[in-house]
């Protein structure tokens, strides 16, 4: 059974057409890497999946539940706020700039949403949070504030915070792009561990090597469409399309 299905997604900002019919099906436990040049619509697509952006046309279903589909006039119609809230709860999101809450300690960052959104008792939430921090190697930073951590550590906290809501799908938008090169490894390692546990993941990334090793499937996007998709190693080692080849040769050269 598929975990997430996006069908023929269209999205414009004013007159700028950013997504021009993007479709993607994600199976349970699958790791998808989305690559492509800057401005090709990767982030926008990811953000549409959890309704940080609203789409103009198309269907998005998560675990069989419809978040949005086309109405009779061919324009996207969203389901009710309550249903959407429930659907979105299945998805975790990790941002390029971490977006931790600076006024909250690491532990508080992790328990905030479980306690006030899911009404988990505080002690239980703390216990889970500490386990998650151990998992990302930061159990000794629970009482620290985000500004006291390195970028890599902050991003690992952000991943743990998303996991604290017990999501079925994790979305990552260039999780290592804001990091110094020597700090990307620790974050990629955490993501690799998640993949090994069969977490379903959709990862927008410029880390081609990581995508090749960890992803099951690679999606190459350019100018608002999916140009090529397939098994990670096949797409990266033997791209079929000229645009994919061009892009890969450019990023692999640097």
């Amino acid at each position: 059974m598929y975990m997430l299905r996006a069908l023929d997604i269209y999205k414009s900002f004013d007159h700028l057409k950013v997504l021009k019919g993007v479709s993607l099906t994600v199976q349970r436990g699958e790791v998808i890497a989305i690559i492509g040049p800057s401005g090709s619509g990767k982030s926008t697509f990811l953000r549409c999946l959890n309704r940080l952006e609203t789409i103009d046309r198309g269907t998005i279903e998560i675990e069989g539940e419809i978040m949005v589909q086309n109405g009779p006039d061919g324009r996207a119609v969203y389901s009710g706020e309550k249903e959407i809230a429930l659907i979105r709860r299945k998805m975790g999101m990790v941002f390029q700039n971490f977006n931790l809450f600076p006024h909250k300690s690491v532990l508080e960052n992790l328990i905030l949403a479980p306690v006030i959104v899911n009404r988990v008792p505080r002690e239980e939430a703390e216990k889970t949070a500490l386990e998650l921090l151990r998992k990302v190697g930061l159990e000794n930073k629970a009482r620290n504030y985000p500004f006291e951590l390195s970028g890599g550590q902050q991003q690992r906290v952000a991943i743990a915070r998303a996991l604290a809501m017990n999501p079925d799908i994790m979305c990552f938008d260039e999780p290592t792009s804001a990091l110094d090169p020597e700090l990307t490894g620790e974050v990629l390692k955490v993501m690799q561990d998640l993949a090994a546990e069969h977490m379903t993941m959709i990862i927008v990334t410029h880390e081609i090597g990581f995508a090749r090793e960890v992803a099951d499937k690679v999606i190459f996007m350019d100018e608002g469409i999916i140009v090529e998709q397939g098994k990670a190693k096949e797409v990266i080692d033997n791209p079929k399309h000229e645009r994919t080849r061009e892009f890969l040769s450019k990023v692999l050269r640097v």
Binding site: N50, L52, R88, R89, G92, F95, A113
Partner: peptide, 14 residues
């Protein structure tokens, strides 16, 4: 306040 703060809260379901 950075927009990212709203987005982080939003995806966490607040």
């Amino acid at each position: 306040i950075d927009r990212g703060q709203y987005e982080a809260a939003d995806v966490l379901g607040l």
